[in-house]
Design a protein around this nucleic acid. Structure first.
Length: 446
RNA sequence: CGGAGCGUAGCGCAGCCCGGUAGCGCACUACUCUGGGGGGGUAGGGGUCGCGGGUUCGAAUCCCGCCGCUCCGACCA
């Protein structure tokens, strides 16, 4: 993409409402625009990142055997009455009436609807287990939206729902999601620590939150330093291998990690040696629950077992805050100059900078580079504008693309471009005919 | 929902106390000097002063009501 044809409304000054860094940077780089309290439009740059995160989530859900569906944002009150949550959910649920005076709501979550879908489609234990998920906009009328997309009222969430014939089988479904979450966050360059959690209005007794550490996190967290030394990448595990999956979960849950609501100072002291006790702030990016028959029973979701008996389905639900992750990643990865995108979620991999737009030779050289990048499927944002002649600040640093290829008359004379790595600031001169080797070899991998 | 505060150009703000019909910086447009990183010069464009009512000869400014937004606490992907 050429910057001269892009929609990138950069702000030179910090909008006053943005208190935390991710919100500031998202507004300043023109990723989002606020429409109302806790409600944002996603502009081209931000939307690309959102889509990348969504795609990673999707791939890992699919890998774990979940099946993607899409349920509507609007639901009727009827099902929620059956589960008893229509009254229980409170003012967070946005309610309204349609033209026929039917009570409707904008879905804050989908346990009722998916349970009804499953109930209608599956009658036999032979069709179990199943896990259905969708990635859809939710609305929760938060008392106090804040922190940009981190606590919006309208947000994009991946929610998966598992259906099993027994609690034991359900436990494996839960474990699969647990492991897939570790993989999902790791692919985005995040270490999301699973912590024992409150179950809140979803209900159930088995639940973990996944939190990433950030100074601006909303929850206090206490955990064992050992988490840092664990292998966060090697989860090439067969999801049907019940033992192996269970072992990963055990490894990640038998170390102490708790949010402040669940924190027990005495246990912390007993289980974790002093030198390994860490505390800080965390951002919740995922939350998984196993709630058994809490919804299947009131909603009449039963299947026939091998002996012909009716069995209430055992379920769990598994959420990832997709839009929140955009902010969370920035919280975890930025410096004074701006965002530092981890490669897998970066809106573009390379920023190509023409230092002297209008100069024929330089223009031609940059143009050639730009076209070659595109031909090689390397995502590139080409700054071909003539907006900031004497600038000390760079849009590219602010926007935080992993790599910058800087090209000017001097480089042209030397037959080389300067390649800058955003994360470290390290620069090197790369001969023009070696540029693509550079970006396809391991030298330029994340 | 309790407490605090703010709505004036795209963004950041001044003007309001002491009423006289709107200003600054950045951004934007044109020309120009520039050019290894928020640069300089000249000339410009852009505002229902959140909305409604009231007081007044006259309201951004005073009074009443409403709406929106932000921050601090209790709740949450």
């Amino acid at each position: 993409m050429r910057l001269s044809r892009y929609f990138l409304p950069i702000l030179r000054e910090d909008p006053k409402e943005a208190e935390i860094i991710s919100h500031r940077l998202m507004l300043r780089t023109g990723m989002i625009r606020q429409e109302a309290a806790g409600s944002y439009s996603w502009l081209p740059l931000g939307f690309r990142v959102l889509k990348k995160i969504e795609q990673i989530v999707r791939e890992e859900q699919d890998r774990a055997g979940a099946l993607e569906v899409l349920m509507p944002t609007l639901q009727s009150a009827e099902l929620w009455r059956k589960s008893g949550r229509y009254e229980a959910y409170g003012k967070e649920m946005l309610r309204f009436k349609d033209r026929h005076d039917r009570e409707m709501l904008y879905g804050p979550t989908n346990e009722e609807m998916i349970t009804d879908i499953f109930r209608q489609g599956v009658k036999s234990y032979r069709d179990m287990p199943r896990n259905l998920y969708h990635i859809q906009w939710k609305f929760r009328d938060e008392v106090r939206p804040r922190f940009g997309v981190m606590r919006g009222r309208e947000f994009l969430m991946k929610d998966a729902y598992s259906f099993d014939i027994s609690a034991e089988a359900g436990r494996h479904s839960y474990n699969k999601m647990f492991v897939s979450y570790l993989r999902t966050f790791a692919r985005m360059g995040l270490k999301a620590i699973p912590m024992r959690a409150e179950t809140g209005p979803i209900g159930g007794d088995l639940s973990h939150e996944f939190l990433i550490l950030a100074k601006t996190g909303e929850s206090g967290v206490y955990f064992d330093r050992d988490f840092y030394d664990m292998d966060w990448s090697a989860f090439a595990i067969d999801y049907d291998d019940v033992q192996a999956i269970s072992k990963v979960v055990t490894d990640f849950t038998n170390k102490y990690a708790a949010t402040e609501d669940k924190h027990d100072e005495r246990e912390f002291g007993r289980l974790v040696p002093e030198g390994r006790r860490l505390s800080g702030r965390g951002i919740e990016v995922g939350h998984i629950f196993f709630f058994g028959t809490k919804y299947s029973k009131p909603l009449g979701c039963y299947v026939q077992g091998p002996g012909g008996q009716q069995i209430a389905v055992e379920s769990g639900s598994y959420g990832i805050g997709v839009s929140r992750l955009v902010g969370a990643i920035i919280e975890a990865s930025h410096d004074e100059a701006g965002i530092i995108w981890p490669e897998p979620v970066a809106p573009y991999r390379v920023g190509l900078i023409n230092l002297k737009p209008g100069d024929g030779d330089t223009d031609r050289a940059c143009e050639k580079l730009y076209k070659s990048f595109r031909a090689k499927k390397i995502e590139v944002l080409y700054d071909d504008t003539d907006e900031r002649p004497g600038a000390k600040f760079t849009v590219m640093d602010l926007v935080g693309l992993p790599w910058q290829v800087i090209m000017g008359p001097r480089g042209l004379k030397e037959g080389a471009a300067e390649v800058k790595r955003r994360a470290t600031g390290e620069r090197q001169s790369v001969p023009l005919d070696k540029i693509f080797d550079f970006f396809t070899s391991s030298g330029a991998s994340a």
